[in-house]
């Protein structure tokens, strides 16, 4: 065997287990779900699923289903409502952690902790804090005179969406801190010194020195976290389960409910494929837009 062939064998041999794992448990399931989405009709017995006739019915039904459009709207509201505040919070904290101060490593660790907390635990903490009768939030709002009657945050149709957005912000802001901090630390300090000598204000230094260097990382982090929020399941499922009256039912929850509560696997798969397509379009468009002109 020649040295080149030997190297190729090693290179592909090392890749093979990862490729097989992803092929067997990502690509093949993806193929199965596409096929399932084209099976018309309903069968609680999945062994008979493959005997149902093939056709585009599920997709046609999905795009004309007002429930799907409502869920799409809820998903968009949920994602935007999460990402915008989480980004601003993350950026603010990253700027703070970019300064030098004693104990910075530990403060940074503490601020990133929510990222490691499982979604179910986040859900429990916020459900309890925002409990209508015994929640600490209502108690403090009463003490401050901001409310006179208890607000049932997760049960009220108007407040439910903000109520599930808040724990989601809490879980995802650390990702912005982490990526933006890494980008900030790549900004050469001399640039700031030079801008300062030239008499730039703090805002001008941020706008014209810091922002251009972290812009790419910020755009990428926003895209990644938007995708994450669009796909998020645990927090909503464990707090409201999509209720009240579908006020917090995102597409992910709708897909899950259709599949595992009503056993409409074909329809659930079709709605899920539309969600995946939306994610794909969203990421391609935003990657194109966020690229600086000329590159």
């Amino acid at each position: 065997m020649t040295a080149a062939r030997r190297r190729a064998l090693i290179a592909y041999g090392l890749l093979a287990p990862a490729f097989l794992l992803v092929a067997a448990w990502v690509l093949y399931p993806l193929w199965v779900v596409v096929e399932t989405s084209l099976r018309q009709g309903r069968s609680p017995n999945i062994a008979r699923l493959s005997r149902l006739p093939l056709g585009p019915d599920n997709y046609l039904r999905a795009v004309t289903d007002p429930e799907v459009w409502h869920a799409a709207l809820v998903t968009a509201g949920y994602a935007v409502g999460t990402i915008a505040p989480a980004f601003l919070l993350g950026l603010g904290l990253a700027l703070l952690l970019d300064r030098e101060f004693p104990g910075r490593r530990w403060v940074r660790s503490l601020m990133l902790v929510p990222w490691a907390v499982p979604g179910v635990v986040v859900a429990i903490a916020f459900l309890w804090m925002f409990d209508a009768s015994y929640g600490v939030v209502n108690a403090q709002l009463r003490n401050l005179g901001l409310i006179t009657t208890d607000v049932a945050w997760f049960v009220n149709g108007v407040t439910a969406l903000p109520a599930v957005i808040l724990p989601t912000i809490w879980k995802c802001f650390p990702f912005f801190v982490l990526t933006l901090l890494a980008a900030l630390q790549a900004v050469p300090p001399e640039l700031h010194e030079a801008a300062k000598v030239d008499g730039a204000t703090a805002w001008q230094r941020f706008r014209f020195v810091t922002w251009p260097t972290i812009r790419g990382a910020a755009a990428l982090a926003i895209v990644l976290q938007t995708l994450w929020a669009v796909k998020e399941f645990d927090i909503i499922y464990a707090t409201t389960g999509g209720g009240p009256a579908r006020a917090t039912q995102t597409l992910s929850l709708l897909v899950y409910e259709e599949a595992f509560q009503f056993f409409r696997f074909g329809y659930a798969s079709a709605v899920g494929m539309l969600l995946l397509a939306a994610c794909a379009i969203l990421s391609f468009l935003s990657i194109r837009w966020s690229r600086p002109p000329g590159s």
Binding site: L30, V32, V33, G272, A280
Partner: peptide
Amino acid sequence: MLPPALIVIP
């Protein structure tokens, strides 16, 4: 991009 709620079906 793959939603877990979708891939859990297959």
